[in-house]
Simulated assay, not measured.
Amino acid sequence: MTAVLALLSAAFLVLPANADPLPFDDCPAATFCLYSGADGTGERRDFTDRQSLESYDPAWDGKALSAKNNTALWACVYGDPQYGGVLQTVKPANKDAYEAGAVRSHKLVPARARCFTGYERCPDNRVCTFTGPNGRGPMTVHLPKTDAATQNYGNSYGAAAAPKSVWNRTRKHVCFYPEPTFTGSWTDPADSRKYGAYVVLRGDSTTIPEPFVRTVQSHELVNGTAECQ
Score class of each variant (00 low, 15 high):
residue 47 F to Q: 06
residue 65 L to D: 03
residue 219 H to P: 06
residue 118 G to P: 01
residue 211 P to I: 00
residue 118 G to W: 01
residue 169 R to K: 08
residue 25 D to H: 11
residue 46 D to F: 08
residue 11 A to S: 12
residue 71 T to F: 05
residue 141 V to E: 10
residue 41 T to Q: 09
residue 27 C to D: 10
residue 225 T to V: 15
residue 208 I to G: 02
residue 36 S to F: 06
residue 74 W to L: 05
residue 219 H to Q: 09
residue 137 G to T: 04
residue 197 A to V: 03
residue 178 P to F: 02
residue 134 N to K: 10
residue 1 M to P: 12
residue 228 C to Y: 04
residue 150 T to A: 04
residue 27 C to A: 09
residue 149 A to L: 13
residue 200 V to L: 02
residue 63 K to G: 06
residue 54 E to M: 13
residue 55 S to V: 10
residue 26 D to N: 06
residue 8 L to K: 06
residue 176 F to R: 08
residue 34 L to K: 06
residue 161 A to R: 09
residue 161 A to F: 14
residue 161 A to S: 13
residue 160 A to K: 05
residue 42 G to F: 06
residue 107 K to L: 01
residue 33 C to S: 03
residue 163 P to K: 00
residue 93 A to W: 14
residue 143 L to H: 14
residue 74 W to A: 04
residue 19 A to Y: 08
residue 90 V to Y: 05
residue 130 F to I: 07
residue 133 P to K: 05
residue 32 F to E: 00
residue 187 T to D: 03
residue 124 D to N: 14
residue 80 D to P: 12
residue 150 T to H: 06
residue 22 L to I: 12
residue 109 V to A: 03
residue 54 E to W: 10
residue 36 S to A: 15
residue 87 L to T: 07
residue 11 A to G: 10
residue 13 L to A: 11
residue 83 Y to M: 11
residue 207 T to A: 00
residue 18 N to G: 09
residue 136 R to C: 04
residue 56 Y to N: 03
residue 122 C to V: 05
residue 209 P to I: 00
residue 179 E to Q: 15
residue 141 V to Q: 08
residue 6 A to G: 11
residue 48 T to Q: 08
residue 150 T to P: 06
residue 182 F to R: 00
residue 96 D to T: 15
residue 28 P to K: 05
residue 106 H to C: 02
residue 101 G to T: 05
residue 201 L to W: 10
residue 141 V to S: 11
residue 69 N to R: 11
residue 153 Y to K: 03
residue 64 A to C: 03
residue 187 T to M: 05
residue 114 R to A: 14
residue 126 R to T: 10
residue 118 G to A: 08
residue 7 L to M: 12
residue 184 G to T: 04
residue 113 A to V: 15
residue 157 Y to I: 12
residue 161 A to Y: 11
residue 12 F to H: 14
residue 18 N to V: 13
residue 139 M to V: 09
residue 205 S to W: 09
residue 202 R to L: 09
residue 27 C to E: 09
residue 149 A to Q: 13
residue 39 D to H: 13
residue 38 A to L: 09
residue 72 A to N: 14
residue 196 G to P: 07
residue 158 G to N: 03
residue 81 P to G: 12
residue 200 V to S: 03
residue 90 V to E: 04
